[in-house]
């Protein structure tokens, strides 16, 4: 598990109230019960903590935390 993943999962559990045991890179937002409003909060967290802008309107219930990690990793590589 990467440090970025550790940090993201910890934030999702603490700030969005998702059960840590459910957190895997392949878990969909639908499976995690992250609805449209919580995805807005997720995008705020990701922007604040990782400096990555996520357009929450482009996220679907079938997207995963792995998709978010890919965006964070992509920014890290560019940097």
């Amino acid at each position: 598990m990467s440090a970025q993943q550790d940090r993201l999962f910890s934030l999702v559990a603490d700030k969005l109230g998702v059960d840590p045991e459910q957190l895997t890179p392949t878990a969909t937002f639908d499976a995690l019960d992250l609805d449209s409003l919580l995805l807005i909060e997720l995008s705020v967290i990701v922007e604040k903590e990782f400096g990555v802008q996520l357009d929450e309107t482009a996220l679907s219930p079938d997207n995963t935390l792995g998709d978010v990690l890919a965006r964070i990793d992509a920014k890290a590589k560019v940097a």
Binding site: S36, L37, L38, I40, E41, V44, T57
Partner: peptide
């Protein structure tokens, strides 16, 4: 209203 609510949540949270 989704747009204005997104702006609200970004600032204040649900």
């Amino acid at each position: 209203v989704r747009r204005t609510k997104r702006a609200f949540i970004r600032t204040y949270g649900v």
